[in-house]
Design a protein around this nucleic acid. Structure first.
Length: 488
RNA sequence: GCCCCCAUCGUCUAGUGGCCUAGGACGCUGGCCUCUCACGCCGGAAACAGGGGUUCGAGUCCCCUUGGGGGCGCCA
């Protein structure tokens, strides 16, 4: 017997443009939303949006012992931060147990499933023995055709699928292509536990069917599950969704991205200063490509996304590239948006709220600031001096610039500045250049600009100093210069 | 162990038998720009895992080896 899961029969009748594509992201709430899950969600979201279909969210919480509400919230937060909005309400898989049981009953009644009275101990023993003999462990189906009247007393049975034993099962995966496995490699999986709760394998199939999922896009660690799930779909006589098993993401060292191996929740990336749009772009390019395109807006991603362009090999996570992309997005981001983004970080580190005037100043300063930041934490730090109260504290390097020579220039310039009427960046620059040129011998601009930078920003790095002076305003500039002169 | 998947610069990738003296990006690196730091610009080093086929012709197709990954739960 050959069980074939073809590219959906109805796909030949109606094409993707006219059918409603429905995808889903189905994480289990046992921890944060990690990077691999985020990419899976992104791909599902893009595919649905590309086809004008629906992207649903289902929380796979049938394992009551390991599911937590905090984890569910972390998943919601992560998806929201990434901008991956889902359609309709999220579905709790656990809330559907009655329906799952109903399907198990149907399978039982049809003779496609049976009760197995093996105890866990018995199973453990069989597994051990198989291992000792170097055999592959597989449930031998001993209760497959046994009469239930032989059931030992006091044992709550599990329900297993009566899976085909001969032939093979083949699926056509949109990423992996045609994959086939001999049915004798697949044993009779448990559909319902001895406590009457459905297993993941059963629940996924029932839910995907009931939710009218057309395309299952998920990590390729589920590839072998696809065969087992296909058998359930077939047993129920249900239409089988399209599959697309995407390669996993590995850590920078090539090892599996796991929680103890550098895998972080998306919240950690947010906290490290990455912009969601940069994250989306990076994740998209990890395993998917559109020619030589590197910087891809979300609109473009939706337009270009297709399953066929997904690569087949695992990718390593590269912080450097993410960081570079993040810098790109920061530079092209809206000034007010960036100020809003760094605002909480700044208020936290200065332990004081920013007032309206300060916000406005930061918005005006942003074009110079964002040019030199790779992440928003850095951006927040670099913006700090604009709103720091006098007198500023200086970094050690800044101190060194405020030496005798530096202070001499500051002193002279300070007097000249107070006479300067038009406090505009280019006017200030002209003035200082003239001052430097007038020296005998002429002074290098840096000799003047750096002490100014130190006095005005407290550090050795800042946006163009003439711009900073204009932004700060004449009064504040002179005040900060006085501070520097007074302290030394 | 068994089953399945994968394999182009350090990393992400383009490449669908001739357009490949293998392209782009990150990183690295030489230079330019320059008031600092960045950005930007110009240049450089850097890859088809190995071996067999198929073909007039292979990075592209097939097989084997090697290497990586995943799965083999009353977890999801």
């Amino acid at each position: 017997m050959v069980v074939v899961c073809p590219r959906s029969a109805y796909l030949f009748l109606q094409n993707l443009d006219t059918m409603t594509v429905v995808t889903r992201f189905a994480p289990s709430p046992t921890g944060f939303l990690h990077i691999g899950g985020a990419r899976t969600a992104l791909f599902n979201w893009l595919f649905a949006r590309h086809h004008g279909g629906k992207f649903l969210l289902r929380i796979e919480d049938t394992d009551r012992a390991r599911s937590t509400d905090d984890a569910v919230d972390a998943i919601y937060d992560g998806l929201k931060w990434l901008g991956l909005n889902w359609d309709e309400d999220a579905i709790s898989q656990f809330s559907r147990v009655e329906r799952h049981r109903e399907v198990v009953e149907t399978l039982l009644a049809q003779g496609n499933a049976y009760r197995c009275y093996c105890t866990r101990e018995e199973l453990a023993q069989m597994r051990e023995q198989a291992q000792a003999e170097g055999r592959k462990w597989q449930y031998d189906g001993r209760w497959r055709d046994r009469d239930p009247s032989e059931a030992p007393p006091g044992v709550d049975p599990v329900v297993r699928l009566k899976a085909p034993r001969d032939g093979e099962t083949v699926i056509f995966d949109h990423v992996q292509g045609e994959v086939r496995v001999a049915n004798d490699q697949l044993d009779d999986m448990v559909l319902m536990r001895d406590d009457g709760t459905p297993t993941y394998m059963l629940a996924v199939v029932v839910d995907d069917h009931d939710m009218d999922i057309t395309h299952i896009i998920r990590g390729d660690d589920h590839l072998t599950n696809a065969f087992r799930q296909a058998q359930i779909f077939l047993a129920m006589g249900w239409h089988i969704p399209e599959f697309a098993h995407i390669p996993l993401i590995h850590g920078p060292d090539g090892a599996k991205m796991s929680k103890r191996h550098g895998a972080l929740g998306v919240d950690a990336y947010r906290d490290q200063g990455f912009l969601p749009e940069a994250m989306r772009n990076y994740l998209l390019r990890l395993g998917w490509a559109y020619g030589d395109e590197e910087v891809i807006s979300t609109e473009q991603a939706i337009e270009w996304f297709s399953l066929e362009n997904i690569g087949r090999s695992a990718a390593r996570f590269d912080f450097a590239k993410l960081t570079h992309l993040n810098g790109l997005y920061i530079r092209s981001a809206d000034d007010a948006y960036l100020v809003e983004t760094i605002r909480p970080l700044m208020e936290k580190s200065r332990n004081e709220a920013l007032n309206e005037g300060q916000i406005a100043l930061l918005v005006r300063a942003m074009s110079g600031l964002k040019e030199r930041a790779k992440d928003i934490q850095e951006l927040a730090d670099s913006a700090m001096f604009f709103v720091s109260p006098r007198p500023l504290s200086y970094t050690e390097k800044a101190m060194n610039l405020l030496d005798e020579d530096g202070l001499t220039h500051l002193r002279r310039l300070r007097d000249e500045f107070s006479a300067l009427g038009d406090w505009k960046s280019d006017r200030i620059e002209t003035h200082i250049r003239e001052y430097a040129d007038a020296g005998d011998p002429p002074i290098k601009l840096g000799k003047v600009a750096q002490p100014l930078r130190a006095a005005l920003s407290g550090s050795t790095v800042s946006p163009p100093i003439f711009e900073v002076m204009a932004l700060l305003g004449k009064e504040e500039t002179l005040g900060r210069m006085d501070d520097a002169l007074g302290t030394h």
